[in-house]
Write a protein that binds this DNA or RNA. Structure first.
Ligand SMILES: [Mn+2]
Ligand SMILES: [Mn+2]
Length: 302
DNA sequence: GGACGAG
DNA sequence: CTCGTCCAACGCACG
DNA sequence: CGTGCG
């Protein structure tokens, strides 16, 4: 019987299967596996988690069981897990902030498969430090979502912004622009929305900003609603609640054409990180202002 | 997953 | 002590 | 207002 303490956190029911052996022979993933995974990527993941309010997506009985999002800090959480009070339409609520390895592993012990993070930090809860474009395909055509992702990257590049790319571990990709926290959520979301509309104008058969699925057809949905207040995105190295325990993995723009969205999993991310450094390791050194980009965008009619 | 109340 | 029950989100676009 | 959506 192996030790079931990870980063100082006792893992209860360590052998409980959270991800069944699906696809067959890929191997099941237990609670202990999940805790060890998050422990193993903590160094590279924590920079993307620190200071951010978290919505926990929890699966106490595994992928097949009942799951839920949890925003308020449960009363049984230990006091060493950091928290922050955030405003909601109703009362202010206290949410979890993952600032250290032990807290990350503790969330795994809580069967939190995916921590979803706000696009701001406690230092400025009303001013996002990330801009995210979430590319969601409406069908299984990988070429289309790649083309769409490439177009987002090229536009942002034309606007003078440095971008970062990752797989979502689900069906698409995320493009991230690290920001200096200056503008409010509404302003950043509006910038993203104008970018998206410009792209839809360029490629109306490939892209859409339609919220209603029925109206999307087979087009790639450019989801910019992630950029609103109290909205979240899956952070780098988060595990997704999907067969095979795929991981949202930072990649280079060169890799876009070769790496499908579910390429890396809890079982394979370690090998990748051993072979090459994380492409997002300097994200925090590239916090940018949207001012110039916004002027350029308005100059091109948006 | 954990708190809590009934048995 | 064991077992069953209960609880664990929300902002926003759109019709 | 209710509903779909992520
Ligand atoms: Mn997505
Ligand atoms: Mn349970």
């Amino acid at each position: 019987m192996s030790d079931s303490t990870v980063a100082g956190v006792e893992i209860s029911k360590p052998d409980k299967v959270l991800f069944p052996d699906d696809p067959p022979r890929s191997g099941s993933v237990t609670k202990l596996d999940l805790a060890r995974y998050y422990d193993s990527v903590a160094d590279v993941m924590l920079p993307h988690l620190r200071g951010r309010p978290v919505n926990m997506e929890r699966f106490p009985d595994g992928l097949g069981g009942f799951s839920f999002y949890e925003k308020k800090v449960p009363s049984h959480f230990p006091d060493w897990v950091h928290t922050v009070e955030v405003a909601t339409a109703q009362d202010p609520q206290r949410q979890v902030v993952v600032d250290d390895r032990r807290s990350l592993v503790y969330l795994a012990q809580q069967a939190c498969v995916t921590p979803h993070t706000w696009l701001c930090t406690t230092k400025a809860l009303d001013q996002p430090d990330q801009l995210v474009f979430d590319l969601d395909p409406s069908d299984d055509d990988l070429a289309k979502v790649r083309k769409a992702t490439r177009m987002v990257g090229e536009l942002l590049d034309d606007l003078g912004l440095t971008t970062y790319l990752k797989t979502t571990g689900s069906r698409g990709y995320h493009v991230l622009v690290p920001l200096r926290p200056r503008l409010g959520f509404d302003e950043v979301r509006d910038f993203a929305h104008r970018c998206a509309e410009l792209l839809v104008e360029k490629a109306p058969d490939l892209l859409t900003v339609e919220v209603r699925k029925a109206k999307r057809g087979r087009r790639v949905y450019v989801d910019v609603a992630r950029n609103g207040y109290a909205q979240t995105a899956v952070p780098a190295y988060a595990v997704r609640a999907r067969p095979g325990a795929p991981v949202s993995t930072p990649i280079t723009w060169d890799e876009l054409s070769r790496v499908p969205p579910t390429k890396y999993t809890v079982r394979t991310v370690g090998r990748r990180l051993a072979a090459k450094p994380c492409p997002w390791r300097d994200v925090r050194r590239h916090a940018q202002s949207l001012a110039r980009a916004d002027r350029a965008l308005r100059g091109s009619g948006r």
